[in-house]
């Protein structure tokens, strides 16, 4: 059923549609189906060599390759931005191998492959989030034995995860885990949400989009189906809290988005800007202006849409 079968022999590339061969894709899809059926459960799969190093998103790329079709529109973000090296490379990879349409707009995308962030714009039914996961096992740093962590998952023995949070509070007065903050999926499995900031954890709760997680090096796939409960672990007297900032985005003035701190000179100057580059651009196009937008556009760092 590959698209390239319709192309004449001379122009036919040396690889299958979406790079992976059909058997591999079927294997990954089977793992995905199992993962969706058991929310939060880590399904082993036969991770393949990809044309980039493990640890650079091979798990996410394999998941995307297994689910992408000619009708899909792909968005790739790295650290929230569409224009970082890894995001650009992965987007180009699928443009070449899967004839994929690509976009930077969150609401136009049907598949969003991500590392580190969930877009600020709310996700819709029908969209699929694909996460690149470096370490799928939330208990790994606490319990080094794989056989033991599997038993702990099997019997929902998650006291140890709570011990980690206890240690944080005992030492620092609050839970200091800011990314890859452990969540309980569907009231059953504790899951590592990949290194997204805990700011994004609430977006996973009852999300209408399907969320797929691929860990290439660790050879695991897991998933959160749409409308599934995803609760961040906490204590009754130390409830889960997300990060907050004292100032809004310096470019678009958004007060409710996740901000990156950017050092702008060697005099200690810095600015806080939206980490979701598309969200920031959209807001600027709508006429929102942050405190430092004029300075930044004078340096041609960003385009100031509102300027004449």
């Amino acid at each position: 059923m590959t698209v390239h079968q319709s192309i004449s022999d001379e122009t036919r590339p040396a690889y299958n549609y979406a790079y992976l061969d059909e058997q591999t894709k079927r294997m990954i899809r089977r793992a995905l189906l199992k993962a969706v059926a058991i929310p939060g459960y880590q399904v082993p799969f036969g991770s393949r060599e990809m044309p980039l190093a493990r640890g650079w998103g091979t798990g996410g790329i394999q998941v995307t390759a297994a689910i992408i079709g000619p009708d899909d529109t792909l968005k790739v973000i790295d650290q929230g931005a569409d224009d970082t090296t890894n995001a650009v490379s992965i987007r180009r990879f699928f443009e070449r191998t899967a004839d994929a349409r690509t976009t930077e707009a969150t609401d136009e995308a049907t598949i969003i492959q991500t590392r580190h962030r969930i877009p600020e714009a709310p996700l819709k039914a029908g969209q699929i989030m694909v996460y690149q996961v470096p370490q799928p096992e939330p208990l790994r740093k606490l319990e080094p034995h794989e056989a033991e962590t599997r038993k702990m998952h099997a019997w929902a023995e998650y006291g140890l995860m709570q011990v980690k949070l206890y240690e944080n509070i005992a030492r620092f007065g609050e839970v200091t885990t800011t990314y890859d903050y452990p969540v309980m999926v569907n009231g059953r499995y504790v899951m590592a949400p990949s290194p997204i900031p805990k700011f994004d954890n609430p977006k996973m709760q009852m999300s209408p989009a399907l969320q797929l997680f691929g860990a290439g090096r660790e050879k695991r796939i897991y998933a959160v189906p749409p409308h599934t409960s995803v609760r961040s672990l906490d204590f009754d007297d130390h409830p889960f809290r997300i990060q907050s900032w004292e100032q809004p985005c310096a470019l678009c003035g958004a007060a409710d988005s996740y901000l990156d701190e950017v050092v702008i000179d060697d005099q200690g100057g810095r600015m806080f800007v939206c980490s979701d580059s598309h969200h920031c651009e959209t807001r600027r196009a709508e006429g929102h202006r942050g405190a430092m937008l004029a300075d930044a556009s004078a340096l041609h760092l960003v385009e100031d849409e509102a300027k004449p």
């Binding site: 023995e157 006291g159 140890l160 011990v163 204590f235 009754d236 007297d237």
Partner: peptide
């Protein structure tokens, strides 16, 4: 505290 948390205690104080 680990055993307490193993047995479902979720109140830090």
């Amino acid at each position: 505290g680990e055993r307490l948390m193993d047995n479902g205690a979720r109140h830090y104080g």
